[in-house]
């Protein structure tokens, strides 16, 4: 791509991103959402975050990788345990990361 094309793409992607982020905020009055749908959307945060996380922990090269050899899965599982036990974000990230790096280098 030429420099102009890249800048054009960046500007166009900015407009597209803004459109997706604001469409219902702008047209919410004209596209009324049923009460039930609005109610259901309170589960969106949990689902969006877990959908981002799961493939990172549970797959390797696009295939299920549920084994102790999967350093990300082991690190993630340890992080879950630490978070449930301590409620500390720093401890969760520190211990999870240490487990992941240890397994990757010595596993």
């Amino acid at each position: 791509m030429s420099s102009t094309e890249i800048w054009l793409s960046i500007v166009a992607m900015t407009i597209i991103t803004l459109a997706t982020r604001t469409v219902m905020l702008v047209f919410g009055d004209r596209i009324p959402l049923p009460e039930r749908v609005q109610h259901a959307l309170r589960f969106a945060p949990v689902c969006a975050l877990t959908a981002l996380i799961a493939p990172e922990l549970l797959t390797e090269q696009g295939a299920w990788a549920i084994s102790l050899a999967n350093a990300k899965l082991v690190g993630g599982a340890i992080a879950v345990a630490v978070m449930l036990a301590t409620r500390s974000m720093m401890a969760t990230m520190g211990i999870g990361m240490a487990a992941y790096l240890a397994l990757r280098h010595f596993g």
Partner: peptide, 29 residues
Amino acid sequence: ILALVALVLPMIAGPPAIAGALVASVVAV
């Protein structure tokens, strides 16, 4: 990713949220 794990865990409270998280995970994979 680990930070997201720490972020989402407190939100998974109650059976509906647990069901949502499980299904979202499996379908995402």
